[in-house]
Design a protein around this nucleic acid. Structure first.
Lengths: 243, 243
DNA sequence: CAGATAAATTCACCCATATGTACGTTTGCG
DNA sequence: CGCAAACGTACATATGGGTGAATTTATCTG
């Protein structure tokens, strides 16, 4: 069950991150198609707790720096090492594709750091983006770091959906793909989840954390370059990990 | 009306900012006294939207860096100038008290930047902290920048409460205090709102924005130093504004 | 490896809460 | 300056969502 008002708070934060200027109650209500009265209650709540204020009287609400303070506090703990960002930046410019670092989140993989390709046609992803752990290269690079037991209990929670023709829709299919990945030395996915999207990924354990790096872009650009990209990936990981 | 689930999202964020480590569903539920099932729904919602993840399987949830990304985006717009932070840092070390920059938020004043005193007994405030605009020195320094019309319409929304013996509980009382502030050249408050707390504040217009700076601490330390503190305040504002 | 214990998840029902409606206030325009 | 349209706010009510209890899943313990 989704908690609507909780999701709405996030919607509002995202809204402000997008428009980057104060918004009046009416604007917000209209934008989301929410009733004025409900919007009023929500904004009042956020303002009461010190998360919104009115930069200029009657010119609308805007988030206070409180968000930043709290976000900094939570993110300063166990930050990614400096080299991981250098790694994906370097990989992105070398390959010309979007590169991300993924972490497990139940049956999903979350991107916890992303460098987007600068190509016009590219994989559009952002930090916080979530993809099914079993149907993506980044996810499977995480699964490879699980024990068989851990994987088995995860599988039971997965709802196997046929996102695309090539989506693995059984435990066996996933396990088979994992075996193949071990053989070939890297994980890959060709539109197993997102249409037209191909990805190449490898595990990236950092300390206790099980992460993965993925290079992803349109199938026609990744196509037969997977081995080459995988080599670049591994090489770069080796090179940057030391630093 | 307060939107409970919206407030709960903020509570959770604050919780993680405090404990700075992953927390399981049970821990969170117990901490807040929420039913497990409700906590489950909330955490699931936040995780579904990519705001929480599980650093290690079964080791609990933790916020993703997504919060930081969004918070940065909203805060990068119209950031406070670099000198304003230097100003309050300097003021705090000169006076030994907590110093804050306040902005209007309806009938309240929000602190949008704060440097806390290092004294054991001090004014405890944080970014996002809110105080009544009419019953605090920081608030009144904001009111001074309003036109009479704007003030009048604000007054109608204020619910005059006797927080303390000295709280102004009428429009006239507030206006009188504002006049006195103009005469003496700065705003002050002696426990008009918070018990034992004294504050000295001056307006701080930055660009189009109407802000104020306040030096606040225990009455016994501020006591008869108000004039001196006000002088330091004004001097520092002059000095740093140029930079 | 049971058996016990604790945690996570599901579900249906009833109450808290989101909303439609109405009212007061502000703003924009002629 | 007066009127209209837009905006913000209050409140009662029906209904969507939070919760307690039941069920499943994981973890501990002897």
């Amino acid at each position: 069950m989704i908690v609507r008002q909780a999701a709405n708070v996030l919607e509002i934060l995202e809204y402000f991150a997008r428009v980057k200027k104060p918004a009046t109650l009416a604007e917000i209500a209209d934008h989301f198609g929410w009733p004025r009265s409900s919007t009023f209650n929500l904004l009042t709540t956020l303002a009461d707790k010190g998360y919104l204020y009115e930069p200029r009287p009657r010119a609308g609400y805007y988030p206070t720096p409180r968000w930043l303070v709290l976000a900094r506090e939570v993110s300063e703990v166990e930050p990614l090492p400096a080299w991981s960002r250098a790694l994906i930046t370097s990989l992105s410019s070398e390959t010309g594709e979007t590169v991300a670092i993924a972490a497990p989140a139940g049956v999903m993989a979350v991107f916890i750091d992303v460098i987007e390709s600068s190509a016009a046609i590219r994989y559009f992803a952002h930090i916080g983006h979530r993809v099914p752990i079993h149907a993506t290269s980044s996810g499977r690079a995480l699964l490879l770091q699980y024990s068989q037991d851990e994987r088995d209990s995860l599988y039971r929670k997965i709802e196997f959906k046929q996102y695309n023709p090539s989506t693995p829709i059984s435990i066996d299919a996933v396990e088979a793909e994992l075996s193949k990945s071990v053989e070939r030395g890297y994980c890959q996915s060709f539109a197993d989840y997102s249409r037209d999207l191909a990805g190449v990924a490898v595990p990236l354990p950092i300390g206790e954390r099980r992460l993965s790096v993925v290079v992803a872009g349109p199938e026609f650009r990744i196509g037969d370059r997977t081995a080459e990209i995988a080599a670049t990936l591994k090489q770069s990981v080796e090179r940057f990990r030391g630093k």
